[in-house]
């Protein structure tokens, strides 16, 4: 759930996968001032290409109310080809095709709606490349 103000701030990361690459090799999708590995403050701005690998996953049967009507749905931890880690819902994929090590492509999708009158929240989801 995100209201307009909070939602708008994250647009560069959620819509365009703008990330930061730190000298240690750590890649952060959310904005960070400091490398959590080396403590250094220098970084390079990169854009994730949107491809990665599933490290682990679950199929959620009991969700919070905003996702209630989407159950059951899969969520995975993904490491992108650039080394960024992210958590994403899996879409347009049969559950039997979801495996640790499976390759995914990130796609732009609707994540949830703030009820019938609130804003629509968009972002990235992962689709297993079959």
């Amino acid at each position: 759930m995100a209201n307009s103000q909070r939602y708008t701030r994250e647009i560069p990361h959620r819509y365009r996968l703008e990330a930061q690459k730190f000298p240690s090799g750590f890649v952060s999708l959310p904005r960070r001032l400091v490398d959590p590995i080396s403590g250094k403050k220098e970084f390079e701005k990169i854009k994730l290409a949107g491809f990665g690998t599933i490290l682990t996953y679950t199929i959620i049967h009991v969700a919070s109310d905003h996702f209630k009507f989407q159950t059951p749905f899969a969520v995975a931890i993904i490491e992108t080809d650039e080394g960024a880690r992210l958590t994403a819902m899996i879409t347009d994929t049969k559950f039997e095709d979801i495996k640790i090590g499976a390759k995914v492509e990130l796609v732009f999708r609707k994540i949830m709606e703030e009820g019938a009158s609130g804003i629509i929240n968009y972002g990235y989801k992962a689709k297993v490349i079959v």
């Binding site: 819902m89 879409t91 796609v107 732009f108 999708r109 629509i120």
Partner: peptide
């Protein structure tokens, strides 16, 4: 359309 698709996401996928 999938549960997570609408005119905006379809337009973006086509535009990509």
């Amino acid at each position: 359309p999938g549960l997570d698709e609408d005119t905006i996401t379809i337009s973006i996928a086509a535009a990509k």
